[in-house]
């Protein structure tokens, strides 16, 4: 019974050392979700105000507080599920709260490594590492690392990718 509740990556036969994301990632993602919900709430507020008068504004605000609070909790938990693990031959990335995903990218198959940082991410000092292979739709993302950590990860991956080149 207990085995069913454990996420799939904990069933991995060997022991894995999971590296967490940077601490600021939670802040950034919570803020981002608040912002998105805020835009929705604004639209809803306009509608509700037309419909109910000034009471509608209160309803929208109340709804926003409740939903945004729940969402923020969920996002915080989602962030905590993200993790990556560098092994001798491959990179493992896990994430997901409801649907759990575990991606395994062998170093030998890496074709491109991208670093990217949006304006908000830059403000909080975060960088995203994207790893691509020749397979379509297999872009593996490690979001929210400290720039120094991300650059170091990129360099390590690049060196190992050059060492074991396996191609298609």
């Amino acid at each position: 019974m207990n085995a069913r509740a454990t996420p799939v990556w904990d069933l991995w036969p060997a022991d894995l050392e999971w590296q967490p994301m940077a601490r600021q990632l939670r802040t950034v993602w919570v803020l981002r979700s608040l912002l998105r919900l805020g835009i929705l709430a604004l639209i809803a507020a306009v509608g509700l105000t037309i419909w109910l008068g000034w009471d509608g504004l209160l309803w929208a605000l109340g709804g926003y507080v409740v939903i945004a609070g729940l969402r923020a909790l969920a996002v915080a938990r989602i962030v905590s599920t993200w993790g990556y693990s560098e092994r001798a031959e491959d990179l493992l990335v896990r994430h997901g709260l409801l649907t759990r995903r575990l991606s395994i990218v062998p170093y030998g198959r890496i074709q491109l490594i991208d670093l990217s940082a949006g304006p908000v991410e830059r403000m909080f000092g975060l960088t995203t590492v994207q790893v691509r292979t020749a397979a379509l739709g297999s872009t593996t993302e490690v979001p929210g690392l400290d720039p120094a950590v991300a650059a170091a990860l990129r360099d390590r991956l690049a060196v190992r990718a050059a060492e074991v080149r396996e191609g298609l």
Binding site: P7, V8, W9, G96, L98, T99, R100, R101, L102, S103, I104, V105, P106, R109, T133, A134, A135, S138, T140, L168
Partner: peptide
């Protein structure tokens, strides 16, 4: 020929 492997587990 395997490029990468993913394991997905829905709710």
């Amino acid at each position: 020929r395997i490029q990468s492997v993913t394991v997905v587990q829905g709710p």
